[in-house]
Amino acid sequence: MTDSEDTGMRARELAAGQRTVVWTATTGPGAPEPLFETSELLLEAPNWSHDGRSLLLNGDGRLWRLDVREPSGLTEIELGGVPPINNDHVLSPDGRTLYVSGMDGHLYAVPAEGGDGVLLTKGADDVLHFLHGVSPDGTTLAYVLIPRGVPGARGRLALMPATGGPGRVLDTGDGHIDGPEYSPDGAWILFNTETFTEAPGHAQLARVPALGGPVERLHTSDTVDWFPHLSPDGRHATYLSFPAGTLGHPENLDVTVRLVRTDDWSLPVHCHALFGGQGTLNVNSWAPDSERFAFVSYPLTGR
């Protein structure tokens, strides 16, 4: 059984007349700037490299490097022995290791410059794993755990050793969660959750102590909010807002990338409206200088 047959996941493709646009924006004044554009490949979920020189994006089940200084083309990163991947991928704190989520529902570690992958979730075939965070000390991975083959099963927050091994679930309430990511100081795990509302799919932003404890709501809004990402210095955060009533985090919608200061999540510093959704901001895309971040839009001809 192949990965796609196993999980039902497929690499996304651009629609007729659609293109990928990779953007960078700053915490200061000024509009986002387009960095790279293509009508040949649907790219998703930029990570900023630790040396500040490139972005890492997935597309067609593979991982690509885009030079930020001379963004003329893409270079594929070898993922030896790893099945096609989805848009849940992160870098280790030292920048030496890539952790990726395969479309077979398992997690893998690969050298950041490319090479042979190592299966981290060996034997855990009864659940799907969707990676989103690495602890600042590099020892622990935070991911979403979903029972395999159970329609409507909710995602739960789970932690496991970065070297592989069994995971453990943290209690975050009854609602579906996604996007768990450590704060820079390692004290908290941020995520989006449907725990706070009875409205179907109404995800809101929250955090929980990394060692476990009460869940704290970060912001209350009328929009459906996903994927909170803290800047390396912890002063700012980005997240993605979907229209009220949205179920999940689908593709091809009018959405908004929001930038806030972490001392006041209710007052956006900037709001960047675009046509996107799935793939726009799934993983942390902050530059190491904490002043820039990246995201992706998918404009259609005529929009």
Score class of each variant (00 low, 15 high):
H272F: 15
S54W: 06
E76Y: 01
N284H: 10
R62F: 07
T97F: 05
D6K: 15
S290W: 10
T75H: 10
N282D: 13
A287I: 01
G30D: 09
P228Q: 04
V100L: 02
L190F: 13
G73D: 07
G279F: 09
N87K: 02
P288Q: 05
P83L: 02
E194A: 13
D264Y: 09
H176A: 08
P299W: 09
P93W: 00
P268W: 05
L43V: 01
I85S: 02
L170G: 00
L267W: 14
E216V: 05
A206C: 07
T246K: 03
G30N: 07
D51S: 03
A187W: 02
I85P: 03
T140V: 14
G186T: 04
D263W: 12
G201K: 07
R12S: 15
Y239S: 04
R19A: 13
G17H: 09
L230D: 05
S221A: 14
D51F: 04
V260D: 01
T223G: 12
P268T: 02
P147F: 07
G276C: 05
G117L: 06
P299R: 08
P93R: 00
P232Q: 09
L35I: 11
R65W: 06
A244R: 13
P250G: 10
L259C: 05
V68Y: 08
G8F: 10
G245N: 06
P200S: 03
Q278H: 15
S285P: 03
V296R: 04
